[in-house]
């Protein structure tokens, strides 16, 4: 793979299912074109039934696309070798319960082509890392949902993949476990691993991802860098003791002034107005507590996109 080559690239990827009895066609994914650059943390978002999991399954060749192409590391995704550097944690996984945690890690790593020595070392490391060292030789049937999820993550990392695809990784995991997963993913991202995250937990995605794509009814509704998508168009300044005399001058510069528990909050439309406001406050001897850029949350962006998408239809 050349350095500039996308890790994931799809062109017009489409999947239509035909219902057996009614012969009705369900358009699960419809002409989805997406590109994920190496080393990024990419979040795929969408409401239930929007085609996220179908999209991932097509990338991993679990289901065959109706139309379009998908490439992993520049190789056609139908070629098994394209998946050699992919680690995957499915959403509703069913790990064989007759294996112990350690046996399961060995099994999946062997399928990925890891040598025996590497598997032994790596299994020990990862079981420790995901907090399952004490459960390594216990049958999986006795694991809780959260433990299975952590084991699944360890499984995905056994062969040191360059691309990690996670479908709802935080599902069933307690807040401590979720934090552990997030820290682990951040560590991996710093090491250059590309992370493709499919999650309903928008707060998790917002904390972790660089790029996001929102799909609705199988079509791409929005894509871009997270900081750009959530960037607002103004600034907020907080002052604990804004002088009364300054208010008259400030009213011409601010979009709004609000006071709560002695803290005055001033909204400015742009950077120039903000700087002028700061000058006025300082001239009146007022203290400035905080200045921050106005941002939308990912949830705001998500809801707005979904609503717009519905209106367009």
């Amino acid at each position: 793979m050349s350095p500039a080559q996308p890790v994931i690239q799809t062109e017009g990827l489409t999947k239509h299912f035909r219902r057996f009895y009614t012969r009705r066609v369900v358009q699960a994914v419809n002409g989805l074109s997406l590109s994920v650059e190496p080393g990024t943390a990419f979040g795929l978002l969408g409401p239930n039934g929007s085609g996220k999991t179908t999209f991932i399954k097509m990338l991993l060749s679990s289901i065959v696309p109706t139309a379009g192409t998908a490439h992993l590391f520049g190789k056609d995704c139908r070629n098994p070798e394209a998946r050699r550097q992919v680690g995957y944690l499915p959403e509703n996984h069913r790990f064989p319960t007759y294996n112990t945690g350690r046996q399961m890690l060995h099994f999946y790593a062997a399928l990925s082509g890891s040598s025996r020595d590497e598997r032994v070392t790596r299994a020990g490391e990862l079981l420790e890392r995901v907090g399952l060292a004490d459960w390594a030789d216990v049958r999986i049937g006795k694991y809780s949902k959260g433990m299975l999820q952590r084991l699944g993550l360890a499984q995905a990392l056994m062969h040191r993949p360059l691309l990690l695809m996670l479908d709802e990784p935080g599902d069933g995991v307690d807040p401590v476990g979720r934090r552990m997963i997030r820290d682990l993913l951040q560590e991996l991202q710093q090491q250059g691993t590309t992370i493709f995250l499919n999650s309903h937990l928008l707060a998790e995605v917002e904390l972790f991802c660089d790029d996001v794509a929102i799909i609705q009814r199988g079509e791409l509704a929005l894509t871009g860098r997270l900081d750009q998508l959530t960037a607002g168009s103004g600034y907020q300044l907080s002052s604990p003791d804004a002088a009364e005399g300054a208010f008259n001058e400030l009213r011409e510069k601010t979009a709004s002034i609000a006071s709560n528990n002695g803290m005055v909050r001033l909204q400015f439309a742009d950077r120039e107005a903000l700087n002028e406001g700061i000058d006025i406050l300082r001239n009146h001897g007022s203290q400035i507590e905080e200045v921050q850029r106005q941002r939308s949350t990912l949830e705001d962006v998500f809801m707005r996109t979904i609503e717009e998408s519905k209106e367009e239809r």
Binding site: S62, P80, R84, R94, P96, S112, G113, M165
Partner: peptide
């Protein structure tokens, strides 16, 4: 047949192995 159950086959196919393999 158990190998081809939903939830298991997806993970197996995410590895560099084909269905026939």
């Amino acid at each position: 047949p158990t190998v081809f159950e939903p939830g298991r086959i997806e993970l197996l196919l995410s590895k560099p192995v084909s269905r026939s393999h």
